[in-house]
Amino acid sequence: MSKIIGSVSTSHIPAIGGAIAKGLQQEPYWKPFFDAFPPARDWLHAAKPDVAVVVYNDHGLNFFLDKMPTFAIGAAGLYTSEDEGWGIPTVPPVQGAPDLSWAIIEQAVADEFDVTTCQEMLVDHACTVPLQLMWPAGWEGIRIVPIAINTVQHPLPSARRCLAFGRSIGQAIRAFSQDLNVVVLSTGGLSHQLEGERAGFLNPEFDDLCLNALINKPELLTRYSSHEIVELAGSQGAEILNWIVGRGILGGAAREVVRNYHIPISNTAAALQVLEPA
């Protein structure tokens, strides 16, 4: 049986990847963001994860609008990054955990989530930046199951559906036949908006509500429609759906181990939250 050791939820802003590539972690702009990570890494490395289930959204690397799955589950043996067009460096490939992927797919479909399965899947910055943040020296020995949520083309899945999807994934992990330590990595958010006259909109109060609710009252967030989430968190703040899936995976009662919140990183309210089972 596998064990879910906890969850690390973090923003995945592309500029973070640029800052890592240029070694800017201790520059005044970046320091308040990067300094939150050593305690999160200490926690993570002490928990000895074998697999990271990474819940994120693709930004036009693997998926285009020709085929846009609501929930897509990677089932590849190896995942690679590729040129995203605007200059973020690619990173080394990451090993997959296809046996766990298929266990998750079996459970999700049994629970009536009609997922898309991907035996080939490029992973973009939303998957790789959090890996860089948690394993800055490289991720040898770590395998991943990437799970992509459509937070781009409306209609988006509801927060309620995302929480339920996460719970189904969590059940699959806990019932998996191998003895693995699994960490959940959910990425994106928090509030931000890149387009329109409201570009630059941020909402610390809603972010605070999300962070507080995610600890032990994630159902509170299911009262919001996706449209309301866009209104409250900004267009791209809808990425909180990834965090809600992640919280569903973690399951029962939780304890917050690390929290950081820093405005601004790029156009975004950057956040980090580490939860472990209570």
């Binding site: 941020l202 109060e205 605070d208 509500l209 962070l211 507080n212 919140y261 405005i263 309210a269």
Partner: peptide, 14 residues
């Protein structure tokens, strides 16, 4: 917006 950073870090806005 950064005036709210410490409040959200402490979870005391809501």
């Amino acid at each position: 917006y950064s005036v709210h950073n410490e409040d959200v870090k402490a979870g005391r806005l809501t």
